[in-house]
Nucleic acid binder design. Structure first.
Length: 272
DNA sequence: TTGTGTTTTATTGCCTCC
DNA sequence: GGAGGCAATAAAACACAA
């Protein structure tokens, strides 16, 4: 498009020239006399075109009614067939190209809005998941603390009972320990070979298999590298890390049953 | 009134499809 | 190869605070 210096100081636009020409004209202001003369001649040509009744139009916004009609049509179908374009253009007294451009821009706006909506939805989903994760993490920590406490208590009771037996064994009137009830000494001293506060060396404890909702000793395949950046991928590593953080000796058969999941794990992120 | 940010209209260049 | 769509961009039109 080319901007003309009209006599009535209103901006007149001719839609027949390209934007590149306009840029050239704008940049050329204040240039050589020859070039200015050329611009003047162009202006004269444009004025003569105006007088000849060529398409002279201000760049202006569409009227409210036009926009309303276009919006209505966009709701029906956001793509424009040639027939509909021509009909709309005729109904709204617009150029078919204007209608096409309006639809194109409208689609772009719709896409932007859609992206914003999707982002909002994903963010809400993420926030909710994070809350869940945080509460589970807290629960895990309190359970671990409780477990430690219980183990200390158990150890104390065990040592007390063994002391009791040592005293009784010296006495000929000591009670028989054959019934195996609590308080019996023959086995209880041997119990608890793995006191918790003094964690055994890693060589003493066999490597614990990682569990993924079951007690299988074979670890699952590693996550695909492509999923490492995703939430699913992070979930995979979180589960591993959480179990690695458990106190040594915690993952036994009991603990396995305690934490095992009845349903098989969903590895949808891993399965193709 | 003016400077500035936003919205709307339009262009350009590239890509895909027929 | 032409038509049409899309992303990026330009620039006018508009809104609004200072």
């Amino acid at each position: 498009m080319k901007r003309l210096s009209s006599s009535d100081s209103s901006d007149v636009w001719i839609s027949m020239c390209s934007g590149k020409e306009e840029k050239v004209l704008k940049k050329s202001q204040g240039y050589s006399i020859e070039f200015q003369a050329m611009l003047d001649s162009l202006d004269q040509e444009d004025h003569s075109g105006e007088e000849a009744g060529l398409i002279t139009e201000k760049k202006r916004r569409l009227s409210a009614n036009q926009v309303k009609a276009l919006e209505k049509n966009f709701e029906i179908e956001n793509k424009l067939e040639p027939e509909r374009k021509a009909r709309l253009a005729e109904e709204l007294s617009l150029q078919p190209r204007q209608v096409a451009i309006w639809f194109q821009n409208r689609r772009a706006r719709w896409k932007t809005k859609q992206l914003e909506r999707d982002y909002g939805f994903l963010k809400a989903s993420y926030d909710s998941l994070k809350l869940d994760f945080d509460s589970l993490e807290q629960e895990k920590e309190s359970l671990a603390a409780e477990l430690t406490e219980l183990k200390v208590k158990l150890r104390r009771e065990t040592s007390e009972s063994s002391n009791h037996c040592a005293v009784k064994q010296e006495s000929p009137l000591s009670e028989s320990s054959e019934d195996g009830k609590p308080g019996s000494c023959s086995e209880s001293v041997k119990e608890d070979p793995n006191p918790t506060p003094e964690l055994p060396p890693s060589s003493a404890a066999p490597p614990l298999p990682l569990r993924y909702g079951s007690c299988s000793t074979s670890p699952p395949p590693p996550p695909p590298s492509s999923s490492r950046g995703t939430m699913a991928g992070r979930g995979y590593y979180h589960q591993v890390r959480m179990e690695e953080n458990l106190p040594s000796g915690f993952i036994s058969e009991e603990s396995c049953n305690f934490f095992s999941v009845d349903q098989p794990p969903t590895l949808h992120w891993y399965l193709p």
